[in-house]
Design a protein around this nucleic acid. Structure first.
Lengths: 213, 213
DNA sequence: TGAAATATGAGCACTACTACCTATGGAAAT
DNA sequence: ATTTCCATAGGTAGTAGTGCTCATATTTCA
């Protein structure tokens, strides 16, 4: 049975190579090749395909954005994300969107066909070495940088930072710790200075982005 | 070669069953059994183990909290999470923490040993049916609930909500959309009313928690 | 012991978001 | 054609966080 594919990548040579690798499997047929997310989304709406393969880094619209929009239109669409980077954020984002495959480009030749068949059956596929490496590595790195930050702040400041990340107001923090709001305010200011943060909600923002909780 | 395990679950019968299932494999040896996360963490600090298996729902300290603390002490520790629930949040949280295995209890008998060997080698293992099912299902559900919210809000309100989730201030939003700050303020108030939100930063908080961006 | 870091507290000006009100013009619905 | 919804905008008040300065007690450490 033939599987019809839409593929997208902004590098023409890679795109051509990808098409050839995929079509070495007799049952896989690349119906559309797009060179950015926007084009992929438009093509998707005018062609009937079984599986979509998207690069993340593309001009006009990233693969993740395109994936999100496609799944909005057709929630059970099997989508596979290709990427060069071993970063954690796009990986988690991809899972969150509801993508069925996440494959690193360096391993793509062997993994991509496997991922396509898995995705076609509604199963999840992540290139194993890659995802494991990525998860362990980056969570360790993240812990490291969090430790660095905690070393920069005093114990009280760290404590208050944690409470900020729990959406507590200065008044609530002051009441819980039996100290004056003024003291909390001073701590906030000292933290902001140490971390070079300015502007409204900058502390809350930082606390949330660094997953302080 | 023998693999030494720490396992934790708050149901004694399940804990006993789990130990027996694991030890049917001659190379796997359960060194410690704990009945909650706190006990698991303490035991972990006083015993040398190769792989840790934790239930999520436990009194005193959840499996995820215990996992986070253990990985803080030993970042390369292979940890497998067991759970009954097919919810998405704890799954993503587990990946974020840096756990190597995520296994549903209903499939545990066959999957758990597989997961242990994978984790021991530093590889990721997710029970396939489960994770695929969970990802597709819940991301579709989440899209649904997001659509419900978007249906509740007018286009302008949705747009402003998105900009709020990008940490933009009312002034910035007003400038970008060429409207008055007052208008933005009114939209914010209307959104807050529709969503029953009150208090400082409630809109930002909601936008971030619902992953509006 | 003396200096530096930390935790505590206050005053004051400024800005931003919340919360409530009114009002007008246009678009959609009945 | 009239009502209802929406986007627009102004007024006024309150509350909370920021940005700054100053002061004092305690702790730490060199």
């Amino acid at each position: 049975m033939e599987i019809r594919l839409l593929i997208a990548d902004d590098h023409p040579i890679f795109l051509k190579g990808l098409k050839e690798v995929i079509e070495m499997d007799a049952d896989l047929k690349v119906i559309v090749s797009a060179k950015n997310g926007q084009e992929a989304l438009l093509s998707f709406q005018s062609h009937s395909v079984d599986v979509v393969v998207l690069d993340i880094d593309m001009p006009r619209m990233t693969g993740l954005e395109a994936a999100e929009k496609m799944l909005h239109i057709q929630p059970d669409l099997p989508i596979i994300i290709l990427t060069m980077h071993k970063e954690k954020a796009p990986f988690l984002k991809a899972l969150e969107i509801g993508v069925l495959g996440y494959v690193l480009k360096e391993n793509a030749v062997s993994d991509i066909v496997h991922a396509i068949y898995k995705a076609k059956d509604g199963e999840l596929y992540l290139s194993p070495e890659i995802s494991a490496y990525l998860l362990k590595k980056t969570s360790a790195l993240q812990r490291q940088s969090k430790n660095d930050l905690k070393a920069l702040l005093t114990p009280s400041e760290t404590h208050i930072m944690k409470m900020i990340s729990e959406y507590k107001s200065s008044k609530e923090i002051a009441d819980e710790l039996f100290i004056s709001e003024k003291t909390v305010s001073n701590h906030r200011m000292n933290i902001a200075k140490k971390l070079n943060l300015t502007g409204k909600n900058s502390l809350l923002r930082f606390a949330l982005e660094q997953r302080w909780g």
